[in-house]
Nucleic acid binder design. Structure first.
Lengths: 242, 242
DNA sequence: CGAGCCGTTGAGGGGATTCAAGCTCAGTGG
DNA sequence: CCACTGAGCTTGAATCCCCTCAACGGCTCG
């Protein structure tokens, strides 16, 4: 487990600028705050930067921090009683992580960076205080909770239903939503795909290879790929037709 | 879709008694309220009674009501793009249903009674007002949201991971948690089990029959069964060992 | 009674796993 | 420099699990 606070802003001025200019402010939790609210928390916000594969927190740890994803993809995973891990959800730009902290409860899952990721961290006490006089922030928190719930249920109905090929196509569809402006998607390792779709890594590899041969997917170096949107849609429709 | 308000309490006195004596008050959302708070909402609470199989609300409908489960089991299900349904979560005694209403958003899933069920319904506006001056209620709401999220993620890692037999054993384990004092569990129809575990109803039937022959399960009339706790634990351990 | 729903069971086929081999590539140390 | 190693990926062959198609029995209900 590695937490890497890149740096903590020393002057209020610096952080005020950073928050005001934050590209995810409209998306993020703290986007619900006005300038006055931002001024109150700016000293407490820390920027956290994670390398791919690094753990943000582990299941069972007492939650003390709340995070907003600025960039990158974070996965939530659990270890089943048989010992194998299962990835249960992804979080991307604008998503809230570590809400359990607000309830003074232990984190439910491990949170691991899939790609290099940038997050904003704020102590739970500060959020507590802000909530007291700020119904909009409370509302925004609830919206994030609901969003996480719907992401989780969607994961189940999309990625844990039907034959392996269809689950893989839906995964690619979901990963494409997290794609950057360069249209490149993050393509997980084969055993990670297995942990997402309940497959062995060999089966995941076979499916990926077949989609590559079919022209749905173009592999570009390790962990990177480009999806052909039209071909993907067609393949999905063919799966769903029958 | 059928909503069956059994009766709406006419006198404040009646509802005040009912709330104060409510067996799920300690568990339920409104358990966070003191007597004064209860007095304010008692006129708005409606008791809802559902027969098994009846729909409480449908996905996509604008949420206007918030519910607490007093007794029975309610399932959340979605229809995948291929047309088959997938059960994504269960709610039991003390669980909160229809939180989306608080956000003025459409319900994410169909909510259907699995067993005869009793719920308390309260309009979202009333909860909104109460939240304003009641941090404890807000906290309680967040706890329920987190509980739903963990239930959903647990569903994925327990019931959508590994071979069919193990998923079935874990389902029985989960259903046993919802058992009444008579130790009887609600045993879903075979196609419902299929929708929970991503199986065909034939496979579900085969697995149930085998567990019955093995003495893990005793079928007692339609939709009712008794699980042998020790045998279930043993079977689960054997599955997890290897 | 026949129709329909629910559950059970069998036979056969197909899809995913298991076991295995071989490939590339990066890192290590001789 | 190159052999050696291990991780990640691919592919093949055999096996097994689950699905598909099918038949049948119990039950309720029109």
């Amino acid at each position: 487990m590695t937490i890497v606070p890149l740096f903590r802003f020393d002057t209020q001025h610096e952080q005020a600028q950073a928050c005001a200019a934050c590209s995810v402010r409209g998306l993020s939790l703290f986007g619900a705050l006005d300038e006055a609210g931002l001024n109150r928390i700016r000293a407490h916000i820390a920027k956290v930067e994670l390398q791919a594969g690094k753990t943000l927190f582990e299941a069972g740890a007492r939650g003390r921090g709340l995070y907003t994803v600025r960039s990158g993809i974070v996965r939530f995973e659990r270890v089943t009683e048989r010992g194998d891990r299962r990835i249960v959800r992804l979080a991307g730009r604008g998503d809230l992580i570590g809400q359990e902290g607000l309830l003074r409860r232990a984190y439910a899952d491990d949170a691991v960076a899939c790609t290099p990721a940038q997050l904003c961290s704020i102590p739970v006490q500060v959020v507590d205080e802000l909530c007291a006089g700020n119904p909009a922030l409370v509302h925004e928190l609830m919206r994030r909770w609901q969003r996480a719930l719907e992401e989780s249920e969607g994961w189940l109905s999309d990625l844990a239903t039907g034959p392996a090929r269809r689950r893989m196509l839906r995964l690619l569809h979901k990963l494409a939503e997290h794609a950057g402006p360069d249209e490149l998607i993050w393509l997980p390792q084969r055993d990670e795909i297995g942990a997402m779709l309940n497959l062995t890594f060999e089966t995941a590899s076979r499916l990926i290879s077949r989609l590559r041969r079919e022209g749905v997917l173009a592999l570009l170096g390790p962990r990177h790929a480009r999806v052909e949107g039209a071909a993907l849609q067609l393949a999905l429709r063919l799966e769903d037709e029958q």
